[in-house]
């Protein structure tokens, strides 16, 4: 898994509520059984005129198409970011575009976990705090970059405003160390197998499909 320690970058304000994963990556843009190469289709319906993904068709109004935000790596969004479909393609597209962190008052639960699993840092701050950060960034996004320090779970603005955010310790460690959650769980294999043996007695009916010699 990709590590996340510290990051400094351009923050783009996309302060809409309920940004769903269909908006982040429409179903029609998932054309391969692959986690790669989706960045060009990110926000296809908003980034491209008539939603048609092709060179020269960018909507100049959309924030990520404005020259100052072309290299944005942090998104500032409204509440319920990433609601809707569970498609992990949405996070793969954000990551491929170069987004490393997303700041929102709240996230869709599946999207939040998908971010963690892919080394994209989801940061929860109040709507007011996000609005203040946006106010500071917008006059000169390239100069007024944000610094994120995951170890201390803190964002620092160019004016040295510091915002602390909460993240579960295990998620923090997973990101700081690039740990693979499957490997971590496989270390508990004995516990899992013991649980299953006991459960086969307690809820035998739930294990009817399981081969007898398991």
């Amino acid at each position: 898994m990709q590590k996340f320690l510290t990051h400094q970058g351009i923050a783009a304000p996309l302060l809409r509520v309920n940004i769903d994963t269909d908006a982040i990556l429409p179903s029609r843009e998932m054309k391969r059984v692959s986690r790669e190469g989706l960045g060009g289709s990110l926000f296809a319906g908003w980034r491209y005129l008539q939603g048609v993904v092709k060179a020269g068709n960018l909507d100049p109004e959309f924030v990520l198409n404005q020259p100052a935000y072309a290299d944005a790596s942090i998104l500032l969004t409204g509440q319920n970011m990433g609601c809707g479909s569970s498609r992990e393609f949405a996070v793969w597209a954000l990551k491929d575009f170069g987004i490393r962190a997303i700041v929102s008052p709240s996230f869709g639960a599946i999207f939040y976990t998908n971010c963690i699993r892919n080394g994209v840092l989801p940061i929860i701050l109040d709507e007011k705090q996000i609005a203040d950060i946006a106010t500071e960034v917008v006059p000169n996004p390239q100069l007024n970059q944000l610094s994120i320090d995951l170890q201390h779970s803190q964002i620092t603005t160019p004016n040295q405003q510091r915002y602390s955010f909460r993240i579960e310790a295990s998620y923090q460690q997973m990101l700081l160390n690039g740990l693979d959650p499957i490997d971590l769980t496989l270390q508990l294999q004995t516990d899992i197998d013991e649980f299953i043996r006991a459960d086969q007695v307690k809820r035998s009916w739930a294990h009817a499909n399981r081969p007898i010699n398991d």
């Binding site: 569970s86 992990e88 599946i110 976990t113 998908n114 769980t185 496989l186 899992i192």
Partner: peptide, 14 residues
């Protein structure tokens, strides 16, 4: 509902 990576975790570990 879960993402594909979480699903992979469930497939590998139950």
């Amino acid at each position: 509902g879960v993402g594909s990576s979480e699903c992979e975790h469930a497939l590998a570990t139950e």
